[in-house]
Computed example of a mutant assay.
Amino acid sequence: MTTNLTSPLPAADVESLTHRLHEDGIIGLPGAFPREWVARLGEDIDTAFAEARARPDGAVGRGPNRFYVEIHPEQLRGFADLAGHPWITAVAEAVLGPDYRIVEVGFDVPLAGAVDQPWHRDFPMPEETARHRRLNSLAVNVTAVDTEADMGPFEIAPGTHWDDGTAFDHGMFPPREAYPRYRELAVRKFPRMGDISIRSALTVHRGTANHSAKSRPVLVLGLDAPGAGNDERHDTAVTREFWASLPDSVRAHLHCPIVDTLTPITQKHTIEGLVMGDS
C-alpha cells in the first residue's frame, strides 16, 4: 500500500482493510503521515496536556501516572489533515456509512511509572453490535512518538470485539478469571511516528507498564455511525473562524456546536478512572 495524503484508497484495499477490521477489531496503517507532521502533533498535545493539568478536571486519570484529555479540534494544527486522510475516510465510510460523524478528539498519555491497566473496553457493547454484529463506532489512534518496548506499549486481544460483555463490570471490564485468555491472545503494538491504527473500541485492550523515563502520548479520533450516541459522552465544539477554515469534506462529518469562544472541556469517564485507578 502506497502512502499518499490526497489519493483515494483503491477499492480492493478498502475491502481488505475492512475485512481485517471485522475479523481482528484493529488494523494498522504504517506511514500515513510525515514525521514532521507528527512532530507538530506532539507539540500540540504537550501544550494541551500542560493546560489541562493546570485546571481542575482538565485531565482524567486512567490508572497511576496515566491520563486522558479530551480537546477541541482546533487545538490541533493538523486536524483537517487527520480528519480528511483518505485511509481514515475510506474505512470509516465502509464500516460506519457515508454519514459517519467525528465525535471525539483527545489523547492518552502514559507517563513514566504508569502500571498495567486492567483489560477493558472503552464503553459497553451497543445493542446494534450485540444483535447484528455491526460496528457503529471506530477509534483512530496516532502515536506521537516512536514506541519502544519499555514505554508501556498498547496491548490488544484481536477478535474480542465480538465477546459477550454481559458479565463485564460496567459493561467494560471483564472478570479477572478471563485474563488468561486475553493474555494468550494479546499482541503488543509498536507504532512509529507517522503510523496510525483504526480499531473498534470494543476490542479488549490495555496499556502496559511504562518502565522508561519517557511518556507515550497517543491521539484518539472517535468516529460514530449516525445514531450511535457516543457524542453524548463528549463536548466537542469549534469556533466560527475554525469552522470556516475547514474543507467541506471535513465539515460534513463534524456535527458539533459552533461557538464564538471555546470553553475548556471538563473530563468525564469517572467510573473508568475509579476502576483503572484500583488496578
Score class of each variant (00 low, 15 high):
Gly159Ile: 09
Glu23Lys: 07
Val109Asp: 00
Leu202Val: 00
Trp37Pro: 02
Asp122Ala: 00
Gly61Cys: 09
Ala186Ile: 04
Pro10Thr: 04
Trp162Ser: 09
Lys214Asp: 11
Ile198Ser: 01
Phe33Leu: 13
Phe173Thr: 04
His255Ser: 08
Leu135Ile: 05
Leu254Ile: 07
Cys256Thr: 15
Glu15Tyr: 06
Glu51Trp: 07
Ile271Asp: 15
Asn210Cys: 12
Phe242Ser: 03
Thr47Leu: 12
Pro180His: 09
Lys214Arg: 15
Arg188Ala: 14
Ala209Phe: 08
Leu135Ala: 04
Gln75Asp: 10
Glu51Thr: 11
Asp44Asn: 12
His269Lys: 14
Val187Lys: 14
Thr2His: 13
Ala157Val: 03
Pro10Ile: 06
Ala12Phe: 06
Arg199Gln: 05
Thr18Ile: 03
Glu128Asn: 09
Ala186Tyr: 05
Met151Leu: 10
Met1Glu: 09
Pro175Ile: 10
Arg176Asp: 15
Asp195Val: 03
Gly194Cys: 08
Val142Gln: 03
Ile196Thr: 04
Val60Glu: 03
Val95His: 02
Leu21Trp: 01
His22Asn: 04
Glu155Cys: 13
Arg192Val: 13
Met276Arg: 10
Phe168Val: 08
Ala114Gln: 05
Ala252Leu: 08
Arg251Gly: 02
Tyr182Cys: 07
Ala39Asp: 15
Lys268Asn: 13
Gly159Trp: 05
Arg53Glu: 15
Val109Leu: 08
Ile45Tyr: 11
Asp260Arg: 07
Thr6Asn: 14
Gly106Trp: 01
Val238His: 02
Gln117His: 09
Leu246Met: 12
Val275His: 10
Met125Lys: 11
Gly165Phe: 11
Asp164Gln: 11
Glu128Lys: 10
Val105Glu: 01
Ala90Ser: 12
Arg206Leu: 06
Glu177Gly: 07
Val187Ala: 12
Thr239Arg: 08
Gly84Val: 10
Asp224Ser: 02
Lys268Gln: 14
Ile156Thr: 06
Met193Asp: 02
Ala237Glu: 10
His211Trp: 11
Val103Trp: 00
Leu202Ser: 02
Arg199Asp: 02
Asp260Ala: 13
Asp81Leu: 09
Pro158Tyr: 05
Pro153His: 11
Gln117Ile: 12
Ala80Met: 04
Pro98Gly: 06
Val103Cys: 06
Thr129Ile: 09
Val115Tyr: 07
Asp116Phe: 11
Val187Glu: 14
Glu127Ser: 13
Met1Pro: 07
Met172Ile: 12
Gly207Asn: 05
Ala252Thr: 04
Arg40Ser: 15
Thr261Asp: 13
Pro73Thr: 10
Asp146His: 08
Ile196Leu: 13
Asp235Arg: 13
Leu76His: 03
Leu29Val: 11
Ala213Trp: 11
His22Gly: 01
Val187Asp: 05
Ala225Cys: 04
Arg240Ala: 11
Ala225Ile: 02
Leu82Trp: 04
Asp163Gln: 13
Thr266Tyr: 01
Ile102Phe: 02
Val275Gln: 05
Ala244Gly: 08
Cys256Asn: 03
Asn230Arg: 15
Arg192Lys: 14
Gly165Met: 11
Ala244Gln: 12
Arg53Val: 14
Arg55Gln: 13
Ala139Ser: 05
Leu138Pro: 01
Ser7Asp: 14
Ala114Phe: 06
Pro126Trp: 07
Arg40Ile: 10
Gly273Phe: 09
Asp260Pro: 04
Pro73Ala: 12
Asp99Leu: 08
Ile258Cys: 06
Val275Pro: 00
